[in-house]
């Protein structure tokens, strides 16, 4: 569906994206994962033709981005980061404008807008000014914008950043619903985000591809180590180290914090094949430490 070959982008001397190549297949939900400044947004912007690559080529369905940009634009629905919409328009007027630019026939237009409003939950806010919407609502309007003409490819840049957990779940549901029939490319810097939605993950760092595999495979290779955080009252780090060191699967014990009110926080590194949490709990129970916090850390990049 999309072929990317040796894509490179320089901003002056700074190399934002360095010769990356990958293929995206029809019906895939692809997650572009990487820390801030890794080149995710730049890559997506080159896929949509918003910026032109310094070198390399993007081909969408045999159209080249250099020669058939307009054809490619018709195939792609794109939502940039933080949904920069026209802030002084009403939601309805905005969607109407997008529908006209997207070439939706007049007689289907209002039905299409109504359908999108149902799908993205916009019915209550159709006559609000975009400026007055919360970030999550704006994101949903942006999503409606991106899927206006039922595009074959949907490109979303950080679709859930800055949203509260409820909104994140809602947006994920919508993306999954769309992803059943469409090719979706989304970027994020949160690992759990791609785990929840994507079939395939490409990890990029400093403009280069570090890993490109299915979500399952990445999970296994990435997950050699797990981190467990434990906060204790009335405990000395040395004693904690002695008590927990013998547990099967624990590789390393680090002191994170001996902060306020005598709470000691330690970070335990464990092999992912074993879950030592039961043993840790039993060991702590034998002492007179007070356990105030005990959780497995979510792995994010």
């Amino acid at each position: 569906m999309i072929q990317v070959e040796n894509l490179t982008k320089y901003y002056g001397d700074f190399c934002a994206v360095d010769q990356i190549s990958f293929d995206i297949h029809r019906g895939e939900i692809l997650g572009l994962l990487g820390p801030n400044g890794a080149g995710k947004t730049t890559t997506l912007r080159m896929l949509t033709g918003y910026i032109s690559p310094t070198a390399g080529d993007v081909r969408v369905k045999n159209y080249s981005i250099d020669e058939n940009l307009l054809e490619i634009k018709k195939l792609i629905g794109y939502l940039p980061e933080s949904a920069p919409l026209y802030h002084d328009m009403l939601v309805y007027d905005y969607l109407d404008y997008v529908a006209r630019i997207r070439g939706i026939a007049k007689e289907n237009k209002s039905a299409r807008i109504r359908h999108l409003a149902d799908m993205c939950g916009l019915n209550e806010i159709m006559h609000n000014v975009i400026d007055e919407l919360s970030k999550g609502l704006k994101q949903r309007v942006g999503l409606a914008h991106a899927i206006m003409n039922d595009p074959e490819i949907l490109i979303l840049d950080e679709p859930t950043s800055g949203l509260d957990p409820n909104q994140i779940v809602e947006i994920r549901e919508i993306i999954k619903k769309i992803g059943k029939e469409k090719t979706v490319v989304l970027s994020t810097h949160i690992l759990s985000e791609v785990e929840a939605t994507c079939d395939r993950i490409i990890i990029i760092d400093k403009g280069k591809i570090v890993a490109d595999d299915s979500t399952e495979a990445i999970k296994q290779s990435e997950g050699d180590e797990n981190f467990i955080s434990v906060s204790l009252l009335n405990a000395e780090f040395k004693n904690v180290e002695d008590a927990l060191n013998g547990i099967d699967g624990i590789i390393k014990i680090d002191q994170i914090d001996n902060g306020d009110e005598g709470v000691l926080t330690v970070k335990l590194t464990s092999r992912s094949s074993l879950d030592p949490r039961g043993d840790i709990y039993r060991r702590i129970k034998e002492t007179d430490w007070v356990l105030v916090e005990f959780h497995r850390e979510s792995r994010t990049l």
Binding site: G49, I76, P84, L85, H145
Partner: peptide, 14 residues
């Protein structure tokens, strides 16, 4: 400034 140009130009317009 708002960034809406990115949305506009990635729609099928020249």
């Amino acid at each position: 400034n708002v960034g809406s140009y990115e949305i506009l130009i990635t729609m099928p317009v020249t």
